[in-house]
């Protein structure tokens, strides 16, 4: 809950209260199991996610939630591979995209604030590996 799960470089992760990562992971698992079932697969070996640094989700907490939730499902023991997506903004003045440091929307060249976020909020189930 309120204390502590902001994602920053060198972050300190505090687990406490109800993790929204738990309900988010449940959504992942629901989608994973449904896709696997549709494909006639009996086992899930790997799950790939893309998680933006501005998504508000902590990958470590997702991993923790996954292990708890996948138990007893065809996804038990699957590898959870999480790709971090950095925050990228577009600077309309310099006409280039820049990666945000400390999540600030400020162009490193002209120091003007960007008005356009181009990446960093993703929370995407990319692919699965199944048998």
């Amino acid at each position: 809950m309120e204390p502590g799960s902001g994602r920053l470089p060198g972050r300190l992760v505090v687990f406490g209260g109800t993790m929204h990562e738990l309900s988010i992971m449940q959504s992942v698992l629901d989608q994973v199991l449904e896709k696997a079932r549709q494909a006639g697969a009996s086992r899930v070996h790997a799950i790939r996610l893309r998680i933006g640094v501005l998504s508000g989700v902590v990958p470590d907490a997702l991993q923790f939630a996954f292990e708890a939730l996948a138990d007893g499902t065809p996804a038990q023991g699957a590898q959870l591979l999480i790709e971090d997506v950095p925050a990228r903004f577009w600077c309309a003045t310099c006409r280039h995209e820049f990666e945000a440091t400390r999540m600030f929307a400020e162009c490193p060249d002209c120091h003007r604030p960007s008005m356009e976020l181009r990446a960093g909020r993703e929370m995407e189930l990319t692919s699965l590996e199944v048998d």
């Binding site: 989608q31 070996h45 790997a46 590898q79 995407e124 199944v130």
Partner: peptide, 14 residues
């Protein structure tokens, strides 16, 4: 263990 199995592309928002 990864990479030896059937890959299902999903690309779906969680």
């Amino acid at each position: 263990a990864v990479g030896q199995h059937r890959v299902l592309e999903v690309r779906q928002a969680i």
